[in-house]
């Protein structure tokens, strides 16, 4: 059985600022990131849908010790955002690390953007990810 939305296709779309997910034609549940089956009912009756990319910050962290070859990105802030369509997604946030506090970030609405990790020797290519910013 063909994989409905492979990572390569998701990644190409994300680089064009389009966040793709899967909508279940049986139960309506949105699955992000892409899987073989619906996360709720395990159906393979899925269609690709574009998500808005907007949502609310649920949690965050600012990284001061990075992995090999990513030291130059430090410090950077990672967020888990609950998308307006329901799923949670991991991405980065444009924010002054000194202002990355619970009061300033938790529950705050974010706008969607994209940034590409060019890849390293282990990553089998580049990886686009959401780069959120605090909504005005």
């Amino acid at each position: 059985m063909d994989y409905k939305l492979p990572f390569a296709e998701y990644n190409d779309a994300l680089k064009k600022n389009k966040l793709l997910g899967l909508k279940c034609k049986d139960c309506g549940f949105i699955t992000v990131p892409s899987k073989m089956v619906c996360r709720k009912c395990s159906s393979t009756n899925l269609e690709i849908v574009q998500l808005k990319g907007t949502g609310k910050i649920q949690t965050f962290t600012t990284i001061f010790v990075a992995a090999e070859a990513r030291e130059c990105e430090c410090p950077y802030t990672i967020v888990m955002v609950e998308l307006d369509e329901g799923p949670w997604i991991m991405g980065n946030l444009f924010v002054d690390p000194n202002r990355a506090t619970m009061d300033n970030l938790i529950g705050k609405r974010v706008d969607f953007g994209v940034k590409v990790f060019p890849g390293d020797r282990y990553s089998a290519g580049n990886i686009a990810r959401p780069q959120f910013s605090l909504a005005e």
């Binding site: 990572f7 990644n11 990131p33 649920q58 949690t59 965050f60 962290t61 990284i63 010790v65 990075a66 992995a67 990513r70 990105e73 950077y76 990672i78 888990m80 997604i89 991991m90 991405g91 980065n92 619970m102 938790i106 990790f117 990553s123 990886i127 686009a128 990810r129 959401p130």
Partner: peptide, 22 residues
């Protein structure tokens, strides 16, 4: 997740830091 989470630069302490605020 190497495709959907490492792009953002997640590290192991990072995972548990996310859980700490939650």
């Amino acid at each position: 997740d190497s495709r959907y989470e490492y792009g953002a630069g997640i590290t192991f302490p990072g995972v548990f830091a996310l859980l700490t605020y939650l």
